[in-house]
Amino acid sequence: MPDGSLPLVLGTLIALGALTFVLMPLLSAVDENEDPRSAYSRDGVRAAQSSNISPDEGLAIEALREIEFDQATGKLSDSDYEELKAKYTALALAELRERDDAAITSVAREALAEGEDPVEAAVRAVQSRRPNCGNCGPRPESDSVYCSSCGSYLPGACGSCGVKITQPGARFCTGCGGQLAAA
């Protein structure tokens, strides 16, 4: 091997390697819908959704937290505190409802895409948020453990996999083994 050719050979090999690395994505087709790193799936739906400047989510709750803290450290007068609290509670509720609505809407849209009745799906989604008594139907209180009409245990569903939880006091999901939030 002639003197000084080693770096050249080495360099060529590195360059070819890099070229393969860089051009690979062009040679193998990328499935836009499957690859989670693709921004352009579902006919640009995802992209279109995010293409507007959306108001920041959670601003109001953040503000409320700060108002509480500022009041506790004595920076806000009581009247200012009440006024701001009322205003930002209203805004936070509006945010919260917007989120809920958005969640329901997306459920309905998915149902539509899968050929189901979107209204049914939305109703189901709303109802699934409330505990459901086997005897008396949906209960109004979201945090009750036992039915207030007949006293029987209110079954829930696992937050991660959706499996029904019927055992009172269960700490882990029978479906996925995940820890249950309220346990």
Partner: peptide, 29 residues
């Protein structure tokens, strides 16, 4: 904006909120 909110009744939203909603808000807070 405040004037508009009061006119539209949005300022009274605290009354309209359900207990569930308030609970969630408190938890987040």
């Amino acid at each position: 904006a405040t004037a508009a909110r009061v006119d539209g009744g949005v300022g009274r939203i605290g009354v309209q909120a359900t207990d569930d909603e308030m609970a969630r808000l408190q938890a987040a807070l």
